[in-house]
Amino acid sequence: MKYMLLIYSDPANEPVYGTPEFGKMMEGYFKLNEKMQAEGAMLSGEGLKEAETSTTLRVRGGKVETMDGPFAETKEHLGGYYLIDVPDLDAALAYAVQIPSAEYGTVEIRPVMDYNPAP
């Protein structure tokens, strides 16, 4: 099954560049990347630029509304994701728990919709 691991965090709680915590976080991400690659679970994964760079758009009554900033006014913002292919939820959770941001942010594990094409 495919799962999206959505990584949310509050920038105020993130380790600061140059501190030992920052080094530990980077190392953690690096190790996890390697592991998911080596175990054939990783489909893709990206980090996102800070939420202030975000633009939100919707179309209402044929009119395009474009706004500065992220969709939801929350402290924790989507900061990155992994798309993985693993046998079940427990396997997905086992990777999610190794995401360093889980220690100060939140990881949402969301199954990817499967249209199940006929064999």
Binding site: M1, Y3, P87, D88, L89, D90, A91, A92, I109, P111
Partner: peptide, 14 residues
């Protein structure tokens, strides 16, 4: 069904 919760006994570490 949708989230793929396994029908299994957890591993030793869990």
């Amino acid at each position: 069904a949708a989230a793929g919760i396994p029908f299994s006994v957890p591993d030793q570490d869990q």
